[in-house]
Simulated assay, not measured.
Amino acid sequence: MRVGACPGKEARRAAITFGTLLTGYDGDGHTRCVSDLQEIRDAVRQFIAERDWQQFQDPKSLLLALVGEVGELAELVQWLPAEEARSRIAKEPLHTRVAEEMADVLIYLVGMADQCNIDLHEAALAKVERNSRKYPVSEFLGEAPHRG
């Protein structure tokens, strides 16, 4: 989890970073920000510690929990016609159910990153950069990549 992803600090990154939190000012009057992912990580660490569940927090167990939660998310939309999915998810009660399952997915993903000592923020930005080279606009504008 990365500290210092402040809006305005790096315009390019700020444009694709979806979560930062203003946490105050340092001694020199500079804005301090912390990644939303770090806040989630810290909240989950506290939740786990309060229940003495550390012994259940290993990469394999978290991955299996993550897969289960992705399945629960998929189950909510699996039989919806593709052209209706967005509008149906925008309405209750499905909107809340999807948000809850997405939160579970994110929590387990952040927990797995924590257990594996992976900076998820940096890994995601690096992956977007690699994909931008792999799928240049000049070749993929309006075209889905094909596996073949």
Results as ranks from 00 to 15, higher is better:
39 E>V: 15
7 P>C: 13
42 D>R: 14
102 M>F: 01
51 R>L: 04
51 R>Y: 00
59 P>C: 00
38 Q>W: 02
96 T>C: 04
27 G>Q: 07
25 Y>F: 05
22 L>W: 03
62 L>Y: 00
90 A>C: 00
6 C>R: 10
75 E>P: 09
59 P>A: 00
13 R>G: 10
24 G>W: 01
49 A>I: 01
5 A>C: 14
74 A>N: 15
32 R>Y: 00
68 G>I: 02
76 L>Q: 03
6 C>M: 06
52 D>C: 09
89 I>N: 06
61 S>Q: 08
50 E>I: 09
16 I>K: 14
10 E>Q: 14
85 A>M: 11
74 A>L: 15
63 L>K: 06
46 Q>P: 08
84 E>Y: 00
44 V>Y: 03
92 E>V: 11
22 L>D: 07
61 S>R: 13
34 V>E: 09
51 R>Q: 04
15 A>V: 07
60 K>F: 00
37 L>T: 03
65 A>F: 02
83 E>P: 05
18 F>W: 08
41 R>N: 09
46 Q>S: 12
97 R>C: 04
100 E>C: 11
36 D>G: 14
103 A>I: 04
64 L>I: 06
80 L>V: 13
24 G>N: 01
61 S>I: 01
75 E>T: 10
18 F>P: 14
102 M>E: 02
8 G>T: 02
92 E>S: 15
88 R>L: 11
99 A>M: 11
82 A>H: 13
51 R>V: 03
74 A>I: 14
71 G>T: 12
102 M>H: 02
91 K>N: 09
23 T>E: 07
13 R>H: 10
77 V>I: 10
77 V>M: 03
75 E>H: 12
16 I>G: 06
31 T>D: 06
41 R>D: 02
16 I>H: 11
7 P>L: 13
33 C>P: 09
59 P>M: 01
63 L>I: 01
14 A>I: 05
43 A>K: 14
34 V>I: 12
9 K>H: 08
64 L>H: 09
21 L>A: 11
41 R>C: 04
57 Q>R: 09
22 L>N: 11
25 Y>L: 07
12 R>E: 11
42 D>M: 10
71 G>L: 09
26 D>Q: 14
56 F>E: 01
17 T>K: 10
61 S>V: 03
50 E>W: 05
70 V>C: 07
99 A>I: 11
61 S>D: 02
73 L>A: 13
17 T>I: 08
76 L>K: 08
49 A>Q: 07
53 W>H: 12
39 E>R: 15
20 T>H: 07
59 P>Y: 01
80 L>R: 15
20 T>K: 09
95 H>V: 04
56 F>M: 01
66 L>S: 08
101 E>W: 01
48 I>A: 03
65 A>C: 12
21 L>F: 04
79 W>N: 14
15 A>W: 03
35 S>H: 05
100 E>T: 13
22 L>I: 05
84 E>M: 10
72 E>L: 08
61 S>F: 02
82 A>M: 12
62 L>T: 04
16 I>Y: 01
84 E>H: 10
99 A>W: 03
48 I>N: 02
37 L>S: 03
66 L>T: 10
43 A>T: 13
86 R>V: 13
